[in-house]
C-alpha cells in the first residue's frame, strides 16, 4: 500500500472538500437568510443591510403571525390532515401489502397487476376532479385524505419488506393459535418499524406539504398552512397591515419569512431522526416491483 499521498490525491481532496462545503452552503444559506429576515430589524431590511445574518433582533413578525387567526387555523388544519391522513394511509397500505406479500395466495398476482397498471396509466387531473365532486367530497376534509390513502410506490416498499421477513415466524404464530389478523398486528407490524417509518415519513411529508388539493377541493377555512403561505406569496392574502411605523412591504417580507420558517420547521426537525430508515427503505424497496 502506498504510504504517501500523491499530488493527484491532494488535489482530489481539495476539490472534494470545496464541493462539499459548497453543497452545505447552498443547502443551508436560504434557510439562514429566511430566518435572518424573519427576525431582523425592519430598517435594516429596507436598507438592504441584511446579507446573511440577522441585524437587530425583532420578533414582531412572529408575534404577528401567532396573533393572526387564519395562520393558527391553517396550521391546525395541516396537523389534522397530516395525522389523520398518515394514519389512514399506514393502515390501508399495510392491509393491502400483507396479503400481497403472500405469493401462495390465489389472486395475489392479479391484485399486484392491478396495482402496477395503475402506476403507469392514471386518470388525469380532470377525471379525478370530477370523481371527487360526484362523490360529494368537494368541500369536505375527506377530499384531502381518502384519495391519497394508498401510494403504489409505498405499497411496493412494504410488500418487499414483508416478503423479506422469515416465514417460520408466521408458522410458529399459527401453531400458537394466532389467526392472520393477529399475526399482522402482533408479529408483522412490530417487526416492520423501519419500513413503516419510511412509508410514514413519505406520507406525512406529502400531507404536510400538500396545497394543490386544498386549492381545488376545499373552502378557505379548511385551507392547510401551505396554501395559506401560497396565498401570502401571490398576494391573495394580505399581511403586514398592522405594521405601524415601519415600512409595510418590509414587514410583509418578515412575516412571509416567519411563515416559511414555522411551517417548514417540523418536517426539518423530524427527518434526520428517520434517516437511517428511509435511506434503507429507498434503496431496498423502491423501483423494483
Amino acid at each position: 500500500m502506498r504510504k504517501f499521498k500523491t499530488t493527484s490525491d491532494i488535489v482530489l481532496d481539495i476539490i472534494i472538500y470545496i464541493v462539499m462545503i459548497f453543497v452545505l452552503l447552498v443547502c443551508l444559506v436560504p434557510f439562514i437568510y429566511m430566518f435572518s429576515i424573519s427576525i431582523s430589524d425592519p430598517k435594516a431590511i429596507i436598507n438592504n443591510q441584511v446579507s446573511l445574518f440577522p441585524i437587530g433582533i425583532n420578533m414582531e413578525a412572529y408575534r404577528q403571525i401567532f396573533q393572526y387567526p387564519n395562520f393558527f387555523h391553517a396550521y391546525r388544519n395541516t396537523i389534522f390532515y397530516t395525522v389523520v391522513g398518515t394514519s389512514i394511509a399506514l393502515v390501508m397500505t399495510t392491509l393491502f401489502a400483507y396479503p400481497l406479500s403472500k405469493s401462495y395466495l390465489r389472486g395475489q398476482k392479479f391484485a399486484m397487476k392491478l396495482v402496477i397498471i395503475s402506476m403507469f396509466f392514471s386518470g388525469g387531473l380532470i377525471p379525478n376532479y370530477l370523481l371527487i365532486s360526484s362523490l360529494h367530497l368537494t368541500g369536505t376534509v375527506w377530499a384531502m385524505l381518502i384519495p391519497f390513502a394508498i401510494n403504489q410506490f409505498n405499497l411496493i416498499i412494504l410488500v418487499n419488506f414483508f416478503k423479506s421477513l422469515p416465514e417460520e415466524l408466521e408458522e410458529a404464530a399459527l401453531i400458537d393459535g394466532l389467526d392472520y389478523f393477529g399475526i399482522l398486528i402482533k408479529v408483522i407490524v412490530p417487526l416492520s418499524t423501519p419500513a413503516l417509518a419510511t412509508v410514514g415519513l413519505y406520507v406525512a411529508v406529502f400531507f404536510w406539504n400538500d396545497w394543490f388539493n386544498g386549492l381545488i377541493y376545499l373552502s378557505t377555512d379548511q385551507y392547510p398552512v401551505m396554501l395559506f403561505l401560497r396565498n401570502i406569496v401571490n398576494g391573495t392574502t394580505m399581511v403586514g397591515d398592522a405594521a405601524g411605523s415601519a415600512d409595510k412591504s418590509t414587514i410583509a417580507i418578515s412575516i412571509k419569512s416567519a411563515v416559511i420558517i414555522t411551517s417548514t420547521l417540523p418536517i426539518i426537525i423530524l427527518y434526520p431522526f428517520l434517516q437511517k430508515y428511509f435511506v434503507k427503505g429507498l434503496t431496498v424497496g423502491s423501483v423494483k416491483g
Binding site: 392491509l95 392491478l114 395503475s118 396509466f121 392514471s122 386518470g123 377525471p127 370523481l131 362523490l135
Partner: peptide, 15 residues
C-alpha cells in the same frame, strides 16, 4: 384496499 383502487385509481382511468 381493492375497493379503494377501483374507485380512486380505475374509475378516473375510465373517466
Amino acid at each position: 384496499p381493492i375497493i379503494y383502487f377501483i374507485v380512486f385509481k380505475y374509475i378516473p382511468m375510465l373517466g
